[in-house]
């Protein structure tokens, strides 16, 4: 039972991170029908920008203001990078064949990944301990302050995004563009601005996810983006790609699944089990758990 609850806590923590990253994939896919392969590398980049902000810009001593500063600086830099990415690699290919856009996305991923390597080198960096390591022992289950912070902050961000998408005018425009870009344009929506907005929000959430990954796993490498990116993408598919609550649910479920596989079966097979789950879901229910749009037959 203790193992179960402990893995539940761990699973929820990593699940929140997956969910944050998955939102970036699912929003872009929802509107552009494009797998943004570079998103994972933006996430990896945010861990490095966070490290840089902490040690070079904010003096390397941790306090509440510094932690907030690290998050803000990372969010700003990575969001701008997301905008540049969209402008440079995706916008010129919006009318091109689908595969060209996929290769452009792969090229962008390569640029960001190797850009990180050029700036910080190929070796592993250790992310600073920003959050004091306070640990509570609740009836045999270990919970750290960091885990609580990750879960709470992710929940707040996701709730905020949900509110933004469902209740605001821009959110409505995003949903309209996801259903039919041409119709949305006819209704006076500037689809280009909407797509830029999506990249901005997705990258910002990915930036938070990247800093979380740095905080939680500590060791960061320039090529870790693929790994986390793929996981988050799987999460987005499990929840139903294009569906925002689906990405959140998928992230949490995938985190739990991973934690239980690692806890009960074996961590050396975790990757294989995750992707077997993905394939089973694609066979049984390709629209994902919450996916409802059936206009495009998959």
């Amino acid at each position: 039972m203790d193992t179960f609850l402990q893995q539940l806590v761990n699973g929820l923590t990593i699940g929140s991170m997956f969910a944050l990253i998955a939102l970036g994939y699912t929003m872009v896919y929802g509107v552009m029908k494009l797998i943004n392969f570079a998103h994972g590398d933006l996430v990896a980049g945010s861990a490095f920008v966070g490290l840089f902000a902490f040690s070079q810009l904010l003096g390397g001593k941790t306090s509440v203001f510094v932690v907030v500063g690290v998050f803000l600086i990372t969010i700003v830099i990575i969001s701008l990078l997301g905008l540049v990415l969209e402008r440079l690699a995706y916008r010129p290919l919006r009318t091109a064949p689908r595969l060209s856009a996929v290769v452009s996305a792969l090229g962008a991923s390569m640029v960001i990944q190797n850009g990180i390597m050029l700036l910080w080198g190929p070796q592993m960096h250790i992310f600073p301990e920003l959050i004091p390591s306070v640990i509570w022992n609740v009836g045999g289950i270990v919970i750290s302050l960091m885990q609580v912070l990750i879960m709470v902050l992710s929940t707040v961000l996701m709730a905020g995004l949900y509110f933004f998408i469902e209740k605001t005018k821009v959110g409505t425009a995003i949903r309209a563009s996801a259903i039919d870009q041409d119709a949305a344009r006819l209704m006076g929506i500037n689809v280009d601005t909407i797509i830029a907005t999506i990249f901005l929000i997705g990258s910002a959430l990915g930036a938070v996810g990247g800093v979380f990954i740095g905080l939680y796993y500590r060791g960061i490498t320039f090529n870790m983006g693929w790994q986390y990116g793929l996981y988050a993408f799987v999460a987005a598919i499990i929840g139903g790609i294009g569906n925002i609550p689906g990405a959140m649910l998928g992230g949490i479920l995938l985190g739990l699944f991973n934690a239980f596989i690692a806890g009960y079966v074996s961590s050396t097979w975790a990757n294989a089990f995750t992707f077997i789950l993905l394939i089973v879901i694609l066979i049984v229910r390709p629209t994902g758990i919450l996916g409802e749009r059936v206009a495009e037959k998959v």
Partner: peptide
Amino acid sequence: TWRYFIFGFAMIFTMILRPR
């Protein structure tokens, strides 16, 4: 250290200039 960085750009520009 530079080659794949430049390659990524080359991939993007090839696709923009010659999508097929």
